[in-house]
Design a protein around this nucleic acid. Structure first.
Lengths: 355, 355
DNA sequence: CTGAAAGCGCTTACAG
DNA sequence: CTGAAAGCGCTTACAG
């Protein structure tokens, strides 16, 4: 149980009969080393299982590792994106001593142009790593290509557009989350109850989430319910659509049998909750996504039964940690990091506030 | 947006007209400084908002921060405690560079003596910080006192016996978790269905968890159900009790009305699941605790409907991080860290495997 | 009570 | 292609 002093660059240099400078050149492949010494040094490094002291390295290099985070700005209208950022900043605090800094590039998630502007700005700042929310699929894919050319590692957050060329994807398995929602719905309603699926659709945005969620929901019902997914009806609403009363009323009334449950495939579930309250549809089970303040309000008062959380804060935290492991520790990073699908009811809401 | 070079000890020394040695003595209250210089230096430190570079500090000091973790060994019979340890080790990997090492002291959670032995061993090794699972309440409280006298910060994990004298408690709000279980039960069964609460009791162990969980469960039913908690019946089983068939059969048969749901207040829920399968009680809703392999098995095949996770891995992770923040970063640590009550169904089990 | 100097392990010019 | 030396910010004896 004795403490073995870790091997240092100096030790390697002594063994190889060279100077520490040469060892350093080998370690960082910065050339100017004869092949012969190179091989010898590498052999010793390997044999001694040398692990660099990243403390000393960071202290000596004073190199600034700029990490760029390119995400929508969290607005009052769509506060969701505040949480991944908070997670990134939480992670930053743990590793800031290693000379890591954060540059934030916000874009408007309804404005393609703003994304392009911020992308360009970000690239010109030459970050060492990027955290990217690929809200605009096509544009994000192009940016990904640029980063690959520049050898800048990219972590995709929340939505996956990775075609093999990113460091990691961190987010939720949307298909699975839809199945979870369906399970909760079915568990509460039992067989043979009509359910309405409500999609709030944004033009020109990445709808992949929503499609997958609905698909998961339908898959569950198809597999489990005797009558197939014929119990499910569906309505699409433009996200910018003002008053949803008319649409909702029509969707509910036009149902051949009474609607017993509603599944909203994104965070706009509070709009449906508001509708239900105003129209005294008290006993309809309502399930949706994300712990926005408005959603929490309706979860607390019982209009919303369950919310599914994407753990946005943890997404952010894991994103910056993935870059830290890759850039600083030179460790392998898990490529697909699916976060658990959190089920939130009124009773367990409390301690999720910080997630 | 320009980079302000951080203030160093050297800067303070220059301002104060003293040497860095003196500043260091002030910073670490190691005396041998006149009051006059002390005051002056402190003033400047304050004014310049000096933040030590913990990298340089750790590198120069080569001090070994021993963290002791005193928990039950994870056995096949009770694998639960493997997970907090895995979380501690995960955290360790992120901070090991700062000269932090881990000493593991395992005790047998059915053997009070083994706890005392390991406590003594641990204390004699003089750790800088302790992570403690207070399975034996009285003995753990005494250990806590000893640590306080020795000024060793203690993080309590999983169960809270902290009477104001620990650095932090990290675990779950048991009362709340019982309410979550009740909510799920009630949501699935509706009003007016009989429910059985099963407690597996260990003599000479800390039963506080179990009591609180049942209390939360009862509180929910008392508040929500028209008929009060009269729907609830209860049975206690000794944890070492071999075959539970007789007890369970009696409990179910003696119920005036058919039992529709069973809530098991700890991880032994798989024993009840086994009973239900063997006795073809297919349509009873079953809810219990913890993602043990056996429990996962019954969750997957549908015998168990929901499991509540205590996030043991995260408890471990947060424990060591709390000590890191306290010992190394000298930051304030949140005293009561309640982790969210995770609801696990078959559909979202998958990505919880790593939690 | 105080200061000067060496050292932690690594990096970075610079000289040859 | 290689080595010697200075330096990152802090800590630790040691001399006075």
């Amino acid at each position: 149980m004795h403490h073995i002093p870790p091997v240092r660059i100096k030790d390697i240099a002594d063994f190889a009969g060279v100077s520490v400078g040469t060892v350093d050149r080998v370690l960082h492949n910065r050339g100017e080393v004869s092949n012969r010494t190179r091989e010898k040094v590498l052999g010793i490094i390997h044999k001694l299982n040398y692990q660099p002291d990243i403390l000393a390295s960071a202290l000596a290099s004073k190199r600034d590792n700029k990490i760029a985070v390119l995400i929508p700005g969290g607005t009052d209208e769509n506060p969701f994106w505040k949480y991944p950022l908070a997670g990134v900043e939480e992670g930053l605090r743990e590793i800031v001593h290693f000379g890591i800094s954060l540059e934030r590039y916000y874009f408007n998630f309804t404005d393609r142009e703003s994304f392009l502007r911020q992308s360009a700005k970000m690239l010109s700042d030459k970050p060492q790593g990027v955290i990217l929310a690929p809200v605009f699929t096509g544009e994000a894919a192009l940016l990904l290509d640029s980063c690959n050319e520049l050898k800048i590692p990219v972590v995709l957050i929340n939505a996956n557009i990775c075609s093999g060329s990113c460091l990691a994807f961190i987010g939720q398995d949307s298909l699975q989350s839809g199945m979870v929602a369906a399970r909760l719905m079915h568990y509460g309603l039992g067989d043979d109850s009509d359910v309405l699926v409500v999609n709030f659709i944004r033009e020109n945005g990445n709808q992949n989430h929503i499609i997958k969620r609905e698909e998961g929901f339908r898959n569950y019902y198809r597999d489990i319910s005797k009558t197939g997914d014929s119990l499910l009806r569906q309505v699409n609403i433009g996200e910018t659509h003002g008053n949803i009363n008319g649409i909702m009323r029509k969707a509910i009334l036009s149902s051949p049998r009474p609607v017993k449950g509603i599944f909203v495939t994104n965070s706009r579930v509070f709009r449906v909750a508001r509708f239900l309250e105003n129209n005294n549809c008290g006993n309809i089970i309502l399930i949706g996504y994300d712990l926005l303040d408005e959603n929490k309000h309706f979860l607390k008062n019982g209009t919303i039964d369950f919310l599914i959380s994407q753990k946005p804060r943890e997404q952010g935290y894991k994103s910056i940690m993935a870059l830290y492991y890759h850039l600083l520790l030179k460790k392998e990073v898990e490529k697909n990091q699916y976060l658990p699908v959190d089920i939130i009811a009124r009773e367990n809401l409390q301690h999720y506030s910080f997630t």
